[in-house]
């Protein structure tokens, strides 16, 4: 409420230090403590919608599991085409996440830390791929980066690079759709992080980039990790922009969601089985990451 003025100069930073610093340490303790205080658990007005929400999200997946053609699963899992599509999906989603990290983290920093005219508009533009139907996003990418596109024609003329119908095109399409998730997550974390750490680093002689690298990045690492996971998951399931921009060719641009969609036309059972494979792999990867890396962060 009161702006952190003179008094904060002396007492502020230690406060925030105790506020943010130790929280990862004793976090488990407060979590166990409230339990005896509310023996009845969560209040009903929260519990009922929460459970309904959970059911709403989980029920379709349960239905998928119930209707899955388990007998044909072994045959599918040994099919070379499935592995080819799965491998391509994992490689492309990971590359798209890497690309999003390289471009998205600096963009998030710019939006969170630098005052410039039209920042609100830029922020809205960054989230645009979220509301754009992915197929439209794919057409927009064709118009921008296609062989005949606004920028794409120069790529073709100068470097002989054409993105449509290539694996690189898949990565570009997935990054286009997934990067906003990362930017939003990282920007939110950056805005919640106290800029005074960076200012303190500056008073100790660190340049702005050094402060970003040595102070800001470690501070917001959990936010970056969460954003990267979101982006990776979104990229893994990407369908519309990919098939529109990169087309569909087995081994080159046919990722799992594309092969699921096409299987749906011919053999819905196979499509269900393929979706389950994709789900299982993504859950395994995300759970594995969480155990190994996110909790330690």
């Amino acid at each position: 409420m009161t702006p952190p003025s003179p008094a904060g100069e002396g007492g502020g930073p230690p406060d925030t230090l105790t506020g943010t610093g130790p929280s990862p340490g004793p976090a488990p303790r407060p979590r166990t403590r409230p339990r005896p205080r509310t023996p009845g658990g969560a209040p009903l007005p929260l519990l009922v919608p929460a459970l309904l929400g959970l059911a709403f999200l989980v029920l379709p997946l349960v239905a998928l599991l119930l209707r899955a053609p388990w007998s044909s699963m072994p045959e599918l899992l040994t099919s070379a085409e499935v592995w080819q599509a799965l491998r391509l999906s994992l490689v492309c989603a990971t590359a798209a996440t890497a690309l999003s990290l390289v471009l998205g983290v600096p963009l998030a920093w710019l939006l969170a830390r630098v005052e410039f005219p039209g920042r609100g508009l830029v922020r809205a533009l960054v989230t645009l791929p979220l509301v754009l139907p992915p197929v439209v996003g794919g057409v927009a990418l064709l118009m921008a980066l296609g062989r005949n596109g606004v920028v794409g024609r120069w790529l073709d003329d100068w470097f002989g690079v054409t993105l449509p119908f290539t694996t690189a095109g898949v990565v570009v399409a997935e990054a286009f759709v997934a990067m906003p998730f990362l930017v939003i997550a990282v920007e939110g974390t950056l805005r919640a992080a106290d800029p005074r750490y960076e200012e303190a680093a500056a008073t100790l002689g660190a340049g702005r980039f050094t402060a970003f690298r040595r102070v800001t990045l470690p501070l917001v690492a959990p936010g970056i990790a969460a954003g990267a996971v979101l982006a990776w998951a979104r990229a893994l399931g990407e369908f519309g922009a990919t098939i529109t921009f990169a087309g569909n060719f087995p081994g080159r641009t046919q990722t799992m969601p594309l092969s699921v969609y096409l299987a749906l036309q011919r053999d819905p059972e196979a499509a269900i089985a393929l979706s389950l494979v994709l789900l299982a792999v993504s859950v395994a990867v995300l759970a594995g990451l969480r155990d190994r890396w996110m909790t330690s962060a």
Binding site: L142, R147, F249, L262
Partner: peptide, 20 residues
Amino acid sequence: TPVSYEEDVKSALTKVVLKE
């Protein structure tokens, strides 16, 4: 051997309309 097997006829046509 095409460069892509499109998911429907309109998207196949779009690739030619956009000269891709």
